[in-house]
Design a protein around this nucleic acid. Structure first.
Length: 248
DNA sequence: CGCATGGCCCTTA
DNA sequence: TTAAGGGCCATGC
């Protein structure tokens, strides 16, 4: 087909073209193994731009970006380890084309460590838009690079896992595989406990914060809100930064 | 408690 | 330009 020949021509051109010229026109893509099966990953000279299940990858890319896609010989540096470890610090991302709000949301989500979760409202507070909770959900739903930006680690304030771009079931599987104790979180939520405090450190955390996980059981106190924990003399953890004013 | 509802705000059609 | 709707939240029975 004409289009295929055009792409082939562009690919041939790429060998001689200065770095980045082709990347302004087209993206390249590879197929790599991921934690929930085979993934297609598109990238430019700036970094990874799109992650999507291998099934229907090209169609999804075209629908979203409307740009040509060329096969690449090898994945970009750091991609495969990032997918394996759940830490994306070693791989560059190309988030051009996203709004400032979307980028802010994604950057905040990116700071959530493997095996931990934070509420949607926490993201909203982090980026200085405490009332844009719902828009945060929308932005995460449009995350072009799931897994690399770990939007699966953003869960609902009431303890439910919430929705996910690849489906809620996949979200649960991913979190369990990362070691998040969802059953324990459900139990806590059933008792209306959304924060844990230590009476030896005087600090209150999100339950999955690594600081909270080390609290000696006898010194652990559960709270429904940060306001209540503060009233009891605790201060918010500087690592997990539990926001205030939620879940009255 | 579980459910319904109003609120909020960014994006897209 | 506007209106509708979405990976949510808190409140009120």
């Amino acid at each position: 087909m004409t289009e295929d020949r055009l792409l082939t021509g562009l690919a041939a051109l790429a060998a001689d073209a200065p770095d980045g010229l082709l990347d302004r026109i087209a993206a390249r893509w590879v197929s790599v193994p991921g934690p929930i099966g085979k993934l297609g990953v598109a990238f430019t000279d700036q970094g990874v731009a799109y992650v999507h299940p291998g099934e229907g990858f090209a169609e999804a890319f075209r629908a979203r970006f409307g740009r040509p896609l060329l096969p690449a010989a090898r994945p970009p540096a750091g991609l495969v380890p990032a997918l394996r470890t759940g830490r994306s610090s070693g791989v560059r991302l190309d988030l051009r084309g996203l709004s400032g709000f979307q980028r802010d949301v994604l950057e905040a989500a990116r700071t959530i460590p493997r095996g931990e979760v934070r509420p949607y409202s926490w993201i909203a507070a982090q980026i200085g838009r405490p009332k844009a909770v719902r828009a945060v959900g929308t932005a995460l739903g449009n995350n072009p690079v799931p897994l690399l930006i770990p939007c699966h680690r953003v869960t609902r304030s009431d303890g439910a896992v919430g929705d996910y771009v690849f489906g809620a079931a996949a979200k649960e599987r991913l979190l369990l595989a990362e070691g998040a104790d969802l059953e324990w979180l459900r139990e806590l939520a059933g008792e209306r406990v959304f924060y844990l405090a230590s009476d030896t450190t005087g600090v209150v955390c999100f339950p999955t914060c690594h600081n909270a996980r080390r609290i000696t059981p006898g010194h652990r106190h559960g709270f429904r809100s940060v306001a209540q924990a503060k009233a009891a003399g605790y201060r918010p953890c500087r690592t997990c930064k539990p926001a205030q004013g939620l879940v009255g």
